[in-house]
């Protein structure tokens, strides 16, 4: 990861591995956090275009349920994850063709509506999805090797770190490409983009499908880590969490989502246990605080700190 992101990415990876080695239960938390970070990276692409989706848990669910349904047929992580990504991409294309016509409120709420529909279908179609009981996923092999629980969780964390860094790099290339540069133009002045001969709808569709694929992959990793999939993964609170993490991490750089996701999951482990009924309230209050007072998120705070240190040196 070139330039100014290499150092924080290396430090972050070392921190995650070090902390997980010191407290083994954190391997699980970090894997989930980074998987959500992938989905948030997708949200970030849409935020660049000034659009916010309140329904991206839909793609987490598509990825997770793809893994759950395919597990009896395919036994390897390296088959299941690409499959989850592919199915999420496909759903992303179909839904994206519809929602890419809309902006702002319609874009956000239509995504919410689609995710609510999928949530209720997952819950109601008991014969297919086993309803709220969910589906258990047997621990699969990784590249043909069957692993015990502890080495399996470590391998998943390693795989997830590699995915986070690799896809973060790809996302950075994408945002720097002409197509990626067209995204902020949708936010700034869409008509001018069209005058330049670029279809805003197509640009947004590409970003949307990419975000769906990222969330699908993240959902697949979550299913392969928790080894149990329930409809709750498609519920609006999860979509809200993704948007929350995106704002918390800040939209300035591709590391923001992962920074935000890890900070979020760590706080949640303690806060959700201490205040189960006030958890959403805390999230909402922090979200308000960031929007009103620190609009560039955690990454913005980090950059501000670096800039100040640089000036002093």
């Amino acid at each position: 990861m070139g330039g100014r992101l290499a150092a924080p990415a290396t430090v972050g990876t070392a921190l995650v591995l070090g902390l997980a080695a010191a407290a083994p239960w954190l391997t699980f938390v970090f894997t989930i956090a980074l998987a959500k970070g992938l989905a948030v990276l997708g949200i970030l692409l849409l935020l660049r275009a000034g659009q916010v989706s309140f329904g991206h848990a839909l793609y987490l669910a598509v990825g997770a349920y793809t893994v759950a349904f395919a597990r009896p047929l395919a036994g390897d992580v390296l088959v299941l994850l690409p499959l989850a990504t592919a199915v999420a991409t496909l759903v992303g294309v179909v839904v994206g063709l519809f929602v890419a016509r809309y902006r702002d409120i319609f874009f956000g709420m239509l995504n919410l509506a689609f995710s609510m529909v999928v949530y209720s279908l997952l819950e109601k179609l008991y014969a297919v999805t086993r309803g709220t009981d969910g589906i258990r996923v047997d621990r699969p092999t990784i590249a043909g090797v069957a692993l015990e629980r502890v080495p399996y969780e470590w391998t998943m964390l390693g795989l997830m770190l590699a995915l986070a860094i690799g896809l973060g790099f790809v996302a950075r290339l994408f945002l720097a490409s002409p197509l990626g540069q067209a995204l902020p133009a949708i936010k700034a002045r869409e008509t001018r983009l069209e005058f330049a001969g670029i279809s805003a709808r197509r640009v947004l569709l590409v970003a949307y499908v990419a975000s769906a694929a990222l969330a699908g992959l993240g959902g697949g990793v979550i299913a392969l880590t928790t080894l149990h999939v329930t409809p709750l993964i498609a519920y609006w609170t999860h979509s809200g969490e993704l948007v929350f993490i995106a704002i918390l991490g800040g939209g300035g750089a591709v590391l923001g989502p992962f920074l935000g996701a890890v900070a979020f999951e760590l706080v949640r482990v303690y806060a959700a246990a201490a205040f189960p009924d006030a958890w959403q309230m805390i999230l909402g209050a922090v979200l308000l605080g960031i929007i009103l007072f620190a609009s560039r998120g955690l990454w913005g705070l980090y950059e501000g700190l670096m800039a100040r240190l640089g000036r002093r040196a």
């Binding site: 935020l47 000034g50 659009q51 916010v52 309140f54 702002d104 409120i105 956000g108 809200g240 948007v243 704002i247 009924d277 006030a278 958890w279 959403q280 309230m281 999230l283 909402g284 209050a285 979200l287 308000l288 929007i291 009103l292 609009s295």
Partner: peptide
């Protein structure tokens, strides 16, 4: 921005759900 307006009311919604 429209996005921020939507996010603010969404945050309020999250708070009121737990209230």
């Amino acid at each position: 921005d429209h996005v921020l307006q939507l996010l603010v009311t969404f945050a309020l919604f999250m708070i009121l759900e737990d209230v």
